[in-house]
Computed example of a mutant assay.
Amino acid sequence: MIQVDKLQKKYKGKVALDIADVTIKKQEIIGLVGNNGAGKTTFLSLVLDLIQPTEGGVFLKDKNVAVHEDWKQYTGSFLDDTFLIPFMTSYEYLEFISKLHGWKKGDLEEFLEENKQFYGDDFLSGKKMIKDLSKGNKNKTGILGAMIGSLDLLILDEPFANLDPTSQQWLRIKIQKLAEQGVTVIVSSHDLQHVTGISSRIIMLEEGVIIKDVANTENTLVELESYFGAKIQEQTN
């Protein structure tokens, strides 16, 4: 599904990301973890062709994302609210995204009905523009938009942030259902409990380098908490 080949990104000569080789298979749920500045968002931005690599490339279904655009038809993503259109309402934005994917109005209504537990009754009926929404409702709008279309790949950066507990649980279940239906998912999150609760595989970045790439097991959360706890001790000593 995803092949990373000698991928490197530098800013003003400083290496922000350096990944020699990674393969992500269809239906995997990848939990991407690491401290701020570890390279998580840089990696996701390279996968989505939002920035250009200094060296190497990212290949989706054997095609370089920087050269081909086929991947845009089957990839949904939400990294932050810059993906949104601030002077639209949530419904207008989702309608806009659905039209880009060739959906009819009935398709969107069916999608919203299917996922209505994720948002409140007044979320889509209100006239409030996205720029005036709470951070949580902005995230809900972006996450729903990322799920529109015929997905093979879903990429979410900090999707659990600013969501209430019910919405967080809904999202966890939804991601796992999508994977069961054949979707590959990459979730970057600081919330170790959520990310280990849904992922089949954990990739940890530190200073732009992968330092751990393992199958998620019942011991993974404890191992991650121990690792980051040790980091706190290092900083205080």
Rank of each mutant, 00 (worst) to 15 (best):
Tyr93Ala: 07
Leu44Tyr: 04
Ser200Pro: 00
Leu84Lys: 08
Gln176Asn: 14
Met204Gly: 03
Gly31Glu: 05
Val22His: 00
Thr75His: 07
Lys177Gly: 03
Lys212Pro: 03
Leu171Arg: 04
Asp49Leu: 09
Lys140Ala: 11
Phe111Lys: 12
Gly142Gln: 07
Thr41Leu: 06
Gly149Leu: 08
Val47Ala: 14
Glu113Lys: 14
Ile19Ser: 05
Asn162Arg: 01
Asp213Val: 13
Gln8Arg: 14
Ala66Gln: 14
Asp132Leu: 12
Phe78Thr: 06
Leu46Cys: 11
Ile19Lys: 01
Val67Lys: 02
Ala230Leu: 11
Gln52Trp: 05
Pro165Thr: 06
Phe78Glu: 11
Gln181Leu: 09
Gly182Phe: 04
Glu109Met: 11
Lys105Leu: 12
Gly57Pro: 09
Gly37Leu: 08
Lys140His: 08
Gln169Tyr: 04
Glu180Asn: 10
Thr184Ala: 01
Tyr119Phe: 15
Leu50His: 11
Trp170Met: 07
Arg201Lys: 15
Val67Gly: 03
Ile198Pro: 03
His68Val: 02
Gly106Lys: 15
Met204Ala: 02
Met147Asp: 01
Pro165Met: 08
Asn137Ala: 01
Gly34Ala: 10
Lys61Ile: 00
Ile30Ala: 10
Gly102Ser: 09
Asn35Ala: 12
Met1Cys: 05
Pro165His: 07
Lys140Thr: 13
Ala66Thr: 10
Ile130Tyr: 12
Phe43Tyr: 12
Leu108Gln: 02
Pro86Phe: 02
Leu163Glu: 08
